[in-house]
């Protein structure tokens, strides 16, 4: 059953006041302006045993994603398409408020929102991932390991997952006389667009991008929007026990659309540079 759970420091009155006053002056605790995101570092391919992997640091938040491409059976309603799943684990090493065990609702929401950004943008052409339609397809597993939590898991995870997918390499298989034959050549996944997620937090009347853990502790609401390479909106998720005015929604869409372009360039560059090595 869903119920709010405190997964952050207990915020004292002074800190809350400082955040609120800062936002009014467009100066956040770490000196950023409302529409600035934290430093983003993307390491491509840290895990050689995975088909694709990435370690993303967004400020102090660190997320590792590994992509494994295996063979599986298609879903009955999409017999000619490959299968993609995003699974998230916010590891107990990542924060004093996380414990081992099955994923809680926050983790499930994280995985599903990142999944929707990838799926709804049609980043990976699933139709090209059929080996033998109706029988055998490629199954793409996107496994998220959150290593260190300081806010905005949605974006950090999305960047890591997208980078890992865009840089993944795998050996194709074919079926000859009922036998599965693995080809020698390494190929890329059929990636057509780079979805980029941009998350804003809200305190009072102020919206700001890429909230830190402390900001999340006082935040009333959250809005995550994902855009594809053509600047289309592909996925949205409002979160938190607060609300947005319709004007805030429309304004935030444009702020996020512009920010997504910036970040997409960084992801593309990281993937490109890794490919050269």
């Amino acid at each position: 059953m869903s119920a709010a759970e405190r997964k952050h420091e207990f915020v004292d009155v002074l800190r809350r006041q400082q955040i609120e006053e800062g936002l009014a002056a467009d100066r956040r605790l770490d000196g950023r302006k409302a529409n600035e995101t934290r430093e983003l570092s993307i390491e491509v391919g840290p895990v050689v045993k995975a088909n694709g992997s990435a370690l993303v640091r967004l400020g102090n938040t660190a997320v590792m994603v590994g992509v494994k491409i295996l063979q599986g059976t298609p879903f009955p309603d999409t017999p000619d398409q490959g299968v993609l799943t995003v699974n998230a684990d916010v590891l107990p090493i990542s924060s004093p408020y996380e414990e081992p065990g099955p994923p809680d609702e926050d983790t499930i929401e994280l995985a599903r929102v990142v999944d929707r950004g990838i799926r709804e943008s049609h980043m990976v052409d699933m139709k090209e991932l059929a080996v033998e339609p109706g029988k055998k397809v490629y199954a793409v597993f996107v496994d998220v390991a959150v290593l260190d939590v300081d806010g905005n898991l949605f974006d950090a995870t999305s960047y890591a997952a997208v980078t890992a997918l865009a840089s993944a390499r795998f050996k194709k298989v074919s079926v000859k006389d009922g036998e599965v034959v693995q080809m020698e050549e390494m190929v890329k996944l059929p990636v057509s667009t780079i979805p980029v997620s941009v998350t804003a937090g809200k305190v009072g009347e102020f919206l700001f991008l890429d909230p830190t853990g402390t900001e999340e502790a006082v935040m009333e609401a959250r809005m995550t929007t994902t855009f594809d390479s053509e600047d289309n909106l592909c996925a949205t998720q409002k979160g938190g026990e607060g609300f947005f005015t319709p004007e805030e929604v429309l304004r935030q869409m444009e702020v996020a659309r512009a920010k997504a372009k910036e970040i997409r360039a960084k992801i593309k560059e990281a993937v490109k540079n890794a490919g050269k090595e």
């Binding site: 929707r116 709804e120 289309n232 592909c234 996925a235 949205t236 947005f244 319709p246």
Partner: peptide
């Protein structure tokens, strides 16, 4: 005031 907002699809 908007209290739920989700979307999927381009």
């Amino acid at each position: 005031l908007v209290t739920l907002l989700q979307s999927d699809g381009a």
